[in-house]
Design a protein around this nucleic acid. Structure first.
Lengths: 210, 210
DNA sequence: ATCGAATCCGCATGGAAGTGCGGTTTGGAA
DNA sequence: TTCCAAACCGCACTTCCATGCGGATTCGAT
């Protein structure tokens, strides 16, 4: 299956260079190349790309914003960020906006083509230094969230989740096929274990958003 | 510079196979191979590895736990998880515990060796499908945190925060110097604006942890 | 001048939640 | 075999919350 790829990159030289790289692969077709986010947003639907290679540093609208808007009009398109920036802020923002891959511009051509294949097969190609930034994020938030972890039993965890969804004890009992009184017991235990005053604080402290 | 690598893997066959792969690289030396987490924890300091290849599915103590303990006694060691499991739970847990890389066991030898190099150079090698799981985590928490904003008034926001802290209406009223009845009114408005059933769900949806 | 939003307050009523006690059974760890 | 955690259930009692109604003032925008 041939992958249809579009390029969004303001530098003409780099844009053409990327197109050349794409041409060297038999299973990749470069269906479009845009010099700005605005141009891409206007025309990209007609090009029907599977994958978009997106520069971050575009004039006016940044590539990160463009990712969000692209994902709105074409939710299934896979976006790979191509950039010289390696700061966490940009990385996280881009990923949150829906990018699936993140390569530094210095990546060799074969890595780029490999990334295009990966991303169409449900992977998330990332330059290894980018990945480290992401992993560091987990090192940061992980312990912070987890040190404060309470040894809730699986059943208690379930109850807590249903509390967070706004159900009352009777409904929770029905969903779990247990008595309302039992739910009440679990909530008591949860509040004791978490050292909180009531179920609302327990839910807040547990960070459950659904 | 030669990288000193240790292996923790309970399957003897796979352990020896990994050792063989390491031997094929000129810049890698296999300094130790353990069949259990306990053995590794006891002896690994003497081996002074730069990198540890860690299986997850070990008898008794899991590789994930072992990562945490290894990082305690040797904070600078780089750990690469080798596993057949691709579920987010294990991935996040391992990363939070201090793992720097995460490869599926089916990765080809050259990827493994590349990963060892990457990890010593500050990268985070990850199988592309693993990376996708991590990226999906950002897709999940990202928009949930910043797009789904409700137009709560400042006062309503304050009340919501105090709810998350577990206070009852009377206490909130006292803190804000307003009547309990007014607090009740705010909570009504909050629940209406957020389209939730009760204050507990409102708190859950608002992601307030303090 | 009128409208809406934000802030503020009150009350009645039924249902929900919290507290404190009690209990059983099962299954695994010490 | 003893002990404990987990899962399960019950009741009495108090307090708290949710709902639905009503009202007030202020302040900025149309």
């Amino acid at each position: 299956m041939i992958k249809r790829v579009a390029i969004v990159e303001d530098d003409k030289g780099l844009r053409e260079q990327l197109a050349l790289v794409l041409k060297t692969a038999a299973d990749v077709e470069c269906v479009a190349a845009y010099g700005s986010a605005e141009e891409a947003l206007k025309c990209i639907e007609a090009a029907r790309p599977d994958v978009v290679l997106m520069d971050i540093n575009l004039p006016r609208m940044s590539g990160i914003e463009c990712v969000a808007k692209l994902k709105e009009i074409m939710p299934s398109v896979q976006i790979i960020i191509l950039t010289v920036y390696e700061d966490s802020e940009r990385i996280f923002h881009a990923l949150r906006n829906g990018a699936s891959g993140y390569l530094v511009k210095s990546s060799p051509p074969e890595k780029l083509l490999e990334a295009i294949t990966d991303v169409t097969q449900g992977g998330s190609p990332m330059s290894t230094h980018i990945a480290r930034k992401v992993v560091q994020h987990f090192h940061m938030v992980g312990p912070a969230l987890e040190e404060e972890q309470y040894p809730l039993s699986p059943r208690e965890q379930e109850v807590l989740e249903l509390l967070a969804a706004g159900y009352i004890y009777k409904e929770i009992g029905d969903k779990l096929s247990i008595a309302t009184e039992t739910v009440r017991t679990y909530v008591k235990h949860i509040c004791q274990k978490m050292h909180v005053k009531n179920k609302t604080e327990a839910v807040a402290k547990s960070n459950l958003t659904r």
